[in-house]
């Protein structure tokens, strides 16, 4: 029983190996980048624009809006990281409709890598926003006794992030595999559709959680403005 695309190895030289995860990731990277270049090659700055440009604008502004809603007042600063996270996970899930494709996010190595990136990015953004001293001081709040607990929470949530995405993506593949042996034909198709949906939901959850962590870290300790009474 194959759990991860890591196990499909195309080429190996000692420690270095070229497995399906990396290859499919490259494929996704190629498609995303080529598509972006292709579409943004002739960008219109007028009121009239192509459908593809319109689609990309909707995607980009949608992500931007989501980041802003999470509580990051300058979404463009985080758009590169969080947007790519979302686009990568989403495209990895959506590509499962292609036969023979294995989603790289179905590999714990990929999700761990992504979670590690978030794990590193959160303090980086926090330090950038608050300054080094102020950021690390936040680990000792309300008292220094809380320091180990804060560190544990930081690590555990990174782990949870990785496992959550991996579990969901892998389970999709697994369920289809199991169902195919029990009830072939119709039911796996329904499950595949459900898998697409859960993939999108997972992409959303993953990037939103990352955004929330970054927002929590980057929040400058200033008194928050009172919410509008009519809000």
């Amino acid at each position: 029983m194959r759990l991860s695309p890591d196990e499909i190895i195309f080429w190996q030289h000692g420690f270095i190996k070229l497995n399906a995860t990396v290859v499919f990731t490259w494929g996704l990277m190629l498609v995303l980048t080529a598509g972006s270049i292709r579409i943004t090659h002739k960008l219109s700055r007028d009121l009239n624009r192509s459908r593809w440009q319109n689609l990309l604008e909707i995607v980009v502004t949608g992500i931007e809006k989501q980041i802003e809603e999470v509580g990051l007042p300058q979404p463009r600063k985080y758009l590169g990281f969080l947007g790519t996270l979302f686009l990568f996970v989403a495209s990895a899930s959506l590509s499962t409709v292609i036969p023979g494709y294995e989603p790289p996010t179905g590999s714990l190595s990929t999700t761990a890598a992504l979670a590690l990136c978030v794990f590193v990015a959160v303090p980086l953004f926090g330090i950038e926003e608050q300054g080094v001293g102020s950021y690390f001081k936040s680990y000792m709040e309300p008292t220094f006794i809380m320091l180990p607990f804060n560190i544990i929470s930081e690590i555990s949530r990174t782990l949870a992030l990785a496992v959550r995405l991996f579990g969901n993506m892998m389970s999709g593949t697994m369920i289809i595999g199991i169902l195919l042996t029990i009830t072939p034909f119709l039911f796996p198709i329904v499950m595949a559709m459900l898998g697409l949906l859960t993939g999108m939901v997972q992409a959303y959850i993953f990037s939103i959680l990352a955004a929330v962590y970054i927002a929590a870290a980057a929040r400058v300790k200033t008194p928050r403005p009172e919410p509008d009474s009519d809000g």
Partner: peptide
């Protein structure tokens, strides 16, 4: 389940994708 080389490669891939 975790292949550390793949983790590193994927992290690198992801960073490259971010830049791209």
């Amino acid at each position: 389940l975790i292949d550390w080389f793949t983790v590193g490669a994927q992290a690198l891939n992801f960073l490259i994708l971010v830049w791209l």
